[in-house]
Nucleic acid binder design. Structure first.
Lengths: 226, 226
DNA sequence: CCACAGGCAATACCAAAGTATAATGGACGC
DNA sequence: GCGTCCATTATACTTTGGTATTGCCTGTGG
C-alpha cells in the first residue's frame, strides 16, 4: 500500500514520442538546399526547405521536435535578423548556421544570440548531421518543458487574485494564521482559499505546490542572454 | 509583530561589496598587455597581466569579481586549451577572447565553450570595456550564487545518512507516517530526524526546505554545455 | 430578478506536525 | 571502560493543517 506513491505534476505527458522531427532549411542557394535535404532524408528526418526568411516565417508552426539550418547571408532578411525575430517571438528553435564567407564578428553574434552551431561551407556531412541530431534532442527537451510550463501556467491562471495571494504567502513558508494576518482575513478563510489553490493547481502536497511556484517564477534566470 | 518575517536561507551574505574587481590579462604581446592594462586602470579595475597560460595558472586564486582577457594564440598552452582547463577545474571565470587572426571555427568553439565575448584586433576600446563590465557583473553574480551553494552544501553534508533519506522523502511530499513506512521505522522517529534536518539545514519552514532541496539537486540542468 | 461565483467567516472534528522529555542499544574513538 | 554520536522508540501534549457543512454578502450576467 505504501508503494503506491503519487507525484502530482511530476507526471508529465510524453511529447509525441512517435513524431518525425522536422528540419527547416533556409538558404537561397538551390544546390545547398537540395544537398541538405538529401542528408536530412537519409537520417529519416523530414526536410522543409525555403529560399528566404519570409517564406519560412509564413509557414505554420508545428508541435514536433524541429530545428533550423540557416544560411547567414540571405536576400531580404538575413540569417541574423531572422534569428533575432524568432527570439523576439519567443520561438525557441535551435539554429544551426551555415555560411560560405566566414566572418568572425557575425559568427560570434550568432553564437551569443544562442545559435547551437555555426558551420562554414563546404559543409562537412558528419558535422552537420551531428549538429542537427543535437539540435533535435534539445528541441525535444524544450518541447517537453514547454508543455509542462504551459500546463502550470494554465492552472495558475485559473486561480482568483485572492488565491494567488494566498498561494504566494503559503509557499513563502508562512503559517495559515500568518497569511491571514498579512491579508487581514481569518485563518479559516485562508484554509478555504488554500484548499482551492491545492485543488486547482492539482498539487498533492505542500512540497508539490512549492515546486510549482518555483517553476512559475524562477527567482534566478538560468542564464542571462543580454 | 506579524511584519517580522524571516526567510531562512534567503538571507545571503553580500559578497565583499567593496572589493576591487580584477581583470586578468593573458597575452604574449607586451604592447597588447600594456594597452589593455591601461584601459583597465582607467576604469578603476585591477589589472593582472601574464605572458602565458602557465604564468596565469600559477597565480593564486582570489575571491573577488574577476574576468579574463585572453589571447587566442599563445606560446605553449593556447587560449582555447586554457579555457578548457579552467572549465575542467570548475573555475567559472568569464572569458573575453582577443585575437589578431579571425578564425571562425575557433571563435565558434570558444563561444560554445562559454566565452562571453570574442573580439578581433585592432581592439575597439569601448567594445572591450563594455565586455569587461558585463563579465565582471556576471562574475559578481556567480560569486554570490557560489557562496550560497557552498553554504547549502556545507549544511547538507552535516546531515547523517538517515537524515538525508528522511529529507529526500519529506520534500517529495510524503507524510511522516509514509516516510516511516518507506524506511521501516516509526513515525515518531521520523519526526525526530525531521527536526534534526530542519535545524541543521536552518530551514524555517517546509517550504524553505523544499527550496533548498531544489537548489541542491537541480532536476534539470539550466543549460547543457556539451 | 435570479442564478452563480467569489470572498468571507463560523462551528466542529480529525489528522498531522511539532515539542518536551526520557530511555535503550550499538558503534567509535580515546 | 567511558563519553559521544547516531538511531530508535515511547508518552504526553500543543499547534497547525485539512475537511465538512453552513451561512452571509456582493457583484456580474442572463
Amino acid at each position: 500500500m505504501n508503494s503506491a506513491r503519487t507525484f502530482g505534476h511530476e507526471v508529465r505527458t510524453l511529447a509525441t514520442p512517435s513524431a518525425v522531427p522536422v528540419v527547416f532549411i533556409v538558404d537561397d542557394d538551390v544546390s545547398v538546399r537540395e544537398s541538405v535535404e538529401l542528408l536530412v532524408r537519409n537520417e529519416n528526418w523530414k526536410p522543409e526547405p525555403f529560399a528566404s526568411a519570409q517564406e519560412f516565417l509564413s509557414h505554420p508552426r508545428t508541435r514536433v521536435p524541429s530545428c533550423l539550418v540557416l544560411d547567414l547571408s540571405l536576400p531580404g532578411q538575413n540569417g541574423l535578423e531572422l534569428q533575432k525575430q524568432l527570439s523576439l517571438q519567443h520561438i525557441d528553435m535551435p539554429i544551426i548556421f551555415i555560411t560560405g564567407y566566414g566572418d568572425v564578428p557575425k559568427s560570434v553574434q550568432a553564437m551569443k544570440a544562442g545559435a547551437l552551431e555555426f558551420l562554414t561551407k563546404p559543409l562537412d556531412y558528419n558535422a552537420l548531421v551531428n549538429a542537427i541530431r543535437k539540435a533535435l534532442e534539445r528541441s525535444r527537451l524544450a518541447l517537453a518543458q514547454d508543455a509542462e510550463m504551459q500546463e502550470l501556467r494554465t492552472r495558475y491562471a485559473l486561480l482568483t487574485s485572492r488565491e494567488h495571494q494566498v498561494m504566494t504567502l503559503v509557499v513563502s513558508g508562512l503559517l495559515n494564521k500568518q497569511v491571514g494576518g498579512e491579508l487581514g482575513i481569518s485563518e479559516i478563510t485562508v484554509k478555504a482559499h488554500r484548499r482551492q489553490v491545492m485543488q486547482k493547481m492539482k498539487a498533492n502536497s505542500l512540497a508539490d505546490l512549492v515546486k510549482m511556484a518555483s517553476k512559475l517564477r524562477p527567482g534566478r534566470p538560468a542564464i542571462d542572454l543580454t
